[in-house]
């Protein structure tokens, strides 16, 4: 099962569409897309993306099995565990 992720786009002030094919965008092969923007997406290669305002951000490089969203929170499963990722949390320094 393969579909694409695209962009949200403003048309006459209303967010009405995703995937403007005539614009230079990056199309991803996605297995699953969850949550209205920001969204969490799972690529067919197991990569995890966050989608924020016309841009994709890769969060995990692979090994992700499923993604889900509930009440504005974003979760994903990798190996045997479920994790939460907060796109608006302050950065953690290492």
């Amino acid at each position: 099962m393969v579909y694409y992720g695209g962009m949200w786009f403003e048309i006459a002030g209303v967010n009405e569409t995703i995937n403007i094919v005539l614009q230079p965008i990056t199309l991803l092969f996605l297995r699953k897309l969850e949550g209205s923007e920001p969204s969490i997406a799972l690529g067919i290669d197991g990569k995890l993306y966050l989608i924020l305002d016309e841009s994709f951000y890769e969060v995990e490089a692979g090994g992700v099995r499923d993604v889900s969203s509930l009440n504005g929170r974003f979760f994903y499963a990798k190996n045997t565990a479920v994790y939460e990722i907060d796109p608006f949390a302050p950065v953690s320094e290492v």
Binding site: L50, L52, V59, F75, A77, T80, V82, I85, S92
Partner: peptide, 28 residues
Amino acid sequence: RLLPHRSMPKPTLLIDFEEPIQFFYPFI
């Protein structure tokens, strides 16, 4: 503009099912 921290925060481990997961579903 959108990610002022310019990096993703570390994911938080919520539950370890101790078996390889195919799908998961959240609920309240």
